[in-house]
Computed example of a mutant assay.
Amino acid sequence: MSDVAVCSVVSHKFVPAQGMPVPGQVPASARAPRNDALRCTACSMRAICMPQGLTSDELKRMESLICPSRTIKQGETIYRANDSFQNIYAVRAGSFKTVVMHRDGGEQVTGFHLAGDSLGFDGVSSGHHSCDAVALEDSKVCIIPFHLLEAMCREVKAVQQHLHRMMGGEIVRESSQMMLLGTMSAEQRVATFLLNLSDRLRMRGYSPTEFHLRMTREEIGSYLGIKLETVSRMLSRFQRDGLVDIRGKDIRILDHEGLVRV
């Protein structure tokens, strides 16, 4: 299964700042190593989003093609459906949702993305993005020009393997989501969502038992294919059964094995 206020898609679009790469241009960051405090070697998410086994020179080269992180305000988009695909985005801090808009204007949440996750792969096949990527809170992303990443993949096997793993992860995420929507009861969907979020937070060094939901219950319901009222009812049932303790958006898992058995 995939990744994690009332936040609707708004018209704010992330506009590249001065100095950000455009197709066919090599950014200044790719011509000289960065000396700022946001180098990948100092990032707490490095083990998740950076290739392992790089030499010192390869790591410096990898750092040089990543643009310095940009802040995306809550409710703003990094990209929108049908925008031209140019970059991959690594979430450095904060969280995002990806959404598809229905013809009637309704919103379908397709994923929640935490620090260490990547965004933008939906544009690789067609050259245009197929969804909107919206910040659930004030967040930071690092921008990786895809044409520069492809060039490095041809020369550094570890980078190529890491890119393949990330793309493979997207395939697994989508197939897991189809299984969740097609075979699980509403109760199982909500339990699986909490367990998955707990596991992802644990991998990032955060508490797997106590966390704050950045998404609304309506957004969770959209992602899980159930109604807002059903999400609230399932959470209340879990609390009544002693599986979780809920205070608004603050969740504390009391019985992990009990959730697994749901």
Rank of each mutant, 00 (worst) to 15 (best):
S64H: 05
I66N: 06
I66E: 07
I66S: 05
S69G: 05
T71R: 13
I72N: 06
I72K: 08
K73H: 09
K73G: 02
G75D: 07
G75R: 03
E76G: 09
R80T: 12
A81V: 14
Y89F: 15
V91Q: 11
A93Q: 14
A93K: 14
K97H: 13
R103P: 00
G105M: 02
G106S: 10
G106V: 02
Q108I: 03
H113W: 15
L114Q: 07
A115W: 07
G116M: 06
D117S: 06
H128I: 13
H128T: 12
H128E: 08
H129Q: 08
D132L: 07
E137Q: 14
D138C: 03
I143F: 06
I144V: 15
H147P: 05
E150F: 12
C153P: 03
R154Y: 15
R154K: 15
A158D: 12
L163T: 13
H164Q: 13
R165N: 14
I171M: 14
S176W: 09
L181R: 11
G182Y: 04
T183Y: 04
S185C: 02
T192K: 04
D199S: 00
R200A: 02
R200N: 04
M203E: 10
R204Q: 03
R204F: 00
S207C: 04
S207E: 02
P208N: 05
F211H: 04
